[in-house]
Design a protein around this nucleic acid. Structure first.
Lengths: 121, 121
DNA sequence: GAAGATATCTTCGTGTGCGATATATTGGCC
DNA sequence: GGCCAATATATCGCACACGAAGATATCTTC
């Protein structure tokens, strides 16, 4: 599961949403770093629906425009929990190892030194 | 950046490693859930080298077998930090929203609280 | 000398995400 | 009244990362 898919599930974890709302919600969740394109969104929704992680909640007509609300299924809820824990472990591992490194003396100059530090167990 | 790539950079954050060592290290980092295949590994190393995130540290001959050690560059260090924070934000968002859901009433009752909690931002 | 582990690397196929594009309706603007 | 932007859904093709499988080579063990 990649980031767009993960964030779609995350967005749906709070409440059912329709496609366009998901685009905005995911942008917010990612701090603006990820702009969901229609091709990504609807492709993901189809895939997730096939996999049973998401299902069509209801269909409304708002101002003459059809709105399809998608909902996280129990299966999707479980998958999101599993994936979240996987990611959490990765993030923790990376954080731990980055902390051992001499975190960049800042400055625009790269200052030659490889500065790799010795073998830590 | 996807998970295999992320974990390769994470593995290299501690110390330079050679390909085969990375396969084992990434398996350990992921708790055995991700087994890096040679195609994934060497493809990623080539790509990361082209992008300047990783570079060839040294080449040793151990027991007659060539070993190429790869090293995280400053650029790679920075990229890993950025990516780690991105992931951390995603994980926190998902955790927060999952905590709001009635975490599976399920049968055998999980005793009292969801107990997921943690510091919500 | 054959078998298995170590170690690197290539080729090929596929799934996912993304860009571009199409369609339709509403509302604002000139 | 016509045009454009925004809202909203949907499809197509491409690129890229990944994964499976196999080729190559050396060392160790039997």
């Amino acid at each position: 599961m990649r980031e767009p898919t993960f964030l779609i599930l995350t967005a749906l974890a709070r409440a059912p949403m329709h496609g366009y709302g998901l685009i905005q919600e995911v942008a917010e969740l990612s701090g603006g770093t990820l702009e969901l394109r229609p091709g990504t969104l609807y492709g993901a929704l189809d895939r997730l629906t096939d996999d049973g992680l998401v299902s069509l909640d209801r269909q409304e007509i708002v101002d003459g425009r059809a709105r399809k609300y998608y909902r996280l299924t129990d299966h999707g809820d479980a998958a999101l929990r599993v994936e979240t824990e996987r990611l959490r472990r990765s993030v923790e591992a990376a954080t731990r190892r980055l902390a051992l490194r001499p975190a960049f003396p800042a400055g625009p100059s790269v200052t030659g030194g490889p500065a790799i530090a010795g073998g830590v167990a």
